[in-house]
């Protein structure tokens, strides 16, 4: 066994603890997956039937054929990707400005932005609803995306990241004849890609999982995001008469998140580890 492997091996009690913890985390997910692969009628008789074959993809066929789930999925993708792209753009620009540009009231303005972190969404949801209603922005992609763009944490995060990049690089680029925008675009932005990835993943996940604002803003089924759509389909007795279909919807909804996680695993784990050790 290599030295590295020996060093990384957990002591037995810790290993057992980790396995138990992992089992507790995985069990509900596995249960959801198994339920989604059983017909509703079988599950109505006994939900324990999920533990034994036969399994079927019928519920997934129903989702793709007859339900609004693909449309809600598309809505969620548009809203989440739109929010993520806009947040990355705005936070990078704002972060660069706070970190590198000298302008009046910079410090006060930065503190003002940070104060946004202390304001819970609940405190502003009613005036925001009234504002959007008066502007006629409800039931639109813009209405779903716009509130997510106020991202004080993103501004703070990108500011701190840009501050950590040595100013020598800006100065070297200035001596190389680069304009302010070119320094941002060609030097600092590429160097901030790890931060962009981390912020992007968390913004995407946050937007994807957001339930409250879409519930208020999207009132017609064609503008539902997946979270609101799935909740709307859980009518009375859904837990008993359509359990398999319900679970299939949940699994289906989590596929994009799973893809995002697989692609950006390194950044997500890195951000978590960073938060833990900071």
């Amino acid at each position: 066994m290599s030295a590295a492997a020996t060093r990384n091996r957990l002591p037995l009690p810790a290993l057992i603890g980790v396995v138990i913890g992992a089992a507790i985390m995985v069990a509900p997910l596995l249960w959801t997956l198994l339920l989604s692969l059983k017909s509703n009628s079988e599950l109505m008789r006994d939900s324990a039937a999920a533990l034994s074959p036969p399994y079927t993809l019928g519920n997934y066929r129903d989702i793709l054929a007859g339900s609004d789930v693909p449309l809600w999925l598309l809505n969620s993708l548009i809203v989440s990707l739109g929010t993520t792209a806009a947040v990355l753009l705005l936070c990078s620009l704002a972060g660069y400005g706070f970190a590198r540009l000298d302008f009046p009231c910079r410090r006060s303005l930065f503190i003002f932005v940070l104060l946004g972190l202390a304001i819970p969404e609940q405190a502003v949801i009613l005036p925001r609803h009234q504002l959007f209603a008066s502007m006629g922005w409800h039931n639109s992609y813009g209405g779903l995306i716009l509130p997510g763009l106020a991202a004080p944490f993103g501004v703070f995060f990108m500011t701190q990241y840009f501050r950590a990049i040595p100013k020598d690089l800006d100065e070297a680029a200035m001596l190389d004849g680069a304009s302010r925008f070119r320094i941002f675009w060609k030097v600092l932005l590429p160097l901030s890609l790890p931060a962009q990835a981390t912020l992007g993943v968390f913004t995407f996940l946050g937007s994807w999982n957001d339930y409250w604002w879409p519930l208020i803003s999207a009132t017609t089924s064609d503008k539902y995001t997946l979270t609101v759509g799935l909740a709307s389909s859980q009518m009375n007795y859904a837990q008993t008469s359509g359990l398999g279909f319900l679970m299939a919807q949940a699994v289906f909804a989590s596929i994009p998140i799973l893809i995002v996680y697989i692609i950006f695993q390194k950044q997500i784990v890195g951000a978590m580890a960073g938060a833990a050790t900071r």
Partner: peptide, 29 residues
């Protein structure tokens, strides 16, 4: 502006652009 002065500075910490190759570093200016 620094870029228009006809001077070149070698920084104490070198200040090479980490995401560019040596060739790109030299070509940037």
């Amino acid at each position: 502006t620094p870029g228009d002065r006809g001077v070149a500075l070698v920084f104490q910490q070198y200040a090479l652009y980490p995401h560019m190759t040596v060739r790109e570093n030299m070509a940037f200016g």
